[in-house]
């Protein structure tokens, strides 16, 4: 009944952007070892938008961290764009992130001392763009996210939704092949969530591959595919389909009157 870590042949350099095989994470140190992720395998095509759901402690965030190289897996393989990356050094991972993986977090994590513009330009500058290129990309992104007038503001002066959109702009600055989002709406009210989700949908529409870890079913329903984690394992992997007559849906959920 539960998808076990089935040994699979090593993925060939096929059309998958990301392929993980039997990934586990065990936290040790003080007390009994905690099995956060147990043998998760998953493939992701370019352009796919996958939501990862599951109760707290189901290993969603650990999985995402491993996919972005923030922490190393205990066992298992990660293949990114046809190359095996799970054994990379911290520095190599950093370089991979710099060009190919964008991150968005629940608490936005903008560099508080830098202006919005500087935050967004940072990744481009880091990957060797000139000041002008970085600036052009920043102007383009902020315009797209409706933040052009906030360029010189300090992050602390922005609302949560605005901060998260800046964080999105920063994550997208280098046109990464993979965007990893960790509960991006977890700290926002519904209006701001809707704003952020709309942006996610739009970049997805432009071909952006996204992995979104979330509790928020509304956010998850934007994805093409929802992977459900429970106790560190995948218990369900579904393609989301739009009902043929969505208008029936509201009535199906909420009956007005008797």
């Amino acid at each position: 009944m539960i998808a076990r870590a089935v040994p699979q042949p090593a993925p060939s350099a096929d059309e998958m952007l990301l392929k993980i095989v039997g990934l586990s994470k065990v936290y040790k140190g003080g007390g009994p070892p905690v099995h956060a992720v147990r043998g998760v395998s998953l493939s992701l095509e370019p352009g796919q938008f996958v939501a990862v759901m599951g109760p707290s402690g189901s290993g969603k965030s650990s999985l995402l961290h491993m996919l972005g190289g923030l922490e190393p897996p205990t066992t298992g393989q990660i293949w990114f764009d046809g190359a095996r990356v799970d054994g990379l050094s911290q520095a190599r991972w950093a370089m991979l992130r710099r060009r190919n993986i964008g991150f968005v977090f629940q608490f936005f994590n903008l560099v508080s001392n830098m202006t919005v513009a500087d935050n967004v330009e940072l990744p481009a500058l880091m990957s060797g763009a000139t000041r002008r290129q970085a600036k052009e990309r920043r102007i383009e992104l902020l315009a797209e996210l409706g933040l052009s007038d906030k360029a010189s503001a300090s992050p602390a002066r922005l609302s949560g939704g605005e901060q998260q959109r800046v964080a999105l702009a920063r994550a997208l600055a280098n046109r990464p092949s993979l965007l990893l989002a960790d509960e991006p709406t977890g700290n926002l009210d519904s209006l701001n969530s809707a704003d952020v989700l709309r942006v996610l949908c739009r970049v997805h529409g432009q071909g952006q591959t996204i992995i979104l870890v979330t509790h928020d079913a509304r956010a998850a329903s934007m994805a093409d595919r929802v992977v459900n984690l429970f106790d560190g394992m995948i218990i369900d992997d579904m393609d989301v389909v739009t009902p043929i007559r969505p208008s029936v849906a509201a009535a199906g959920v909420l009956r007005l009157g008797e």
Partner: peptide, 16 residues
């Protein structure tokens, strides 16, 4: 600490 960690997620290497 947090900001340095964020920089890492953006692709700064430990050496950098």
């Amino acid at each position: 600490l947090e900001e340095l960690a964020t920089l890492k997620t953006l692709g700064f290497t430990p050496g950098q």
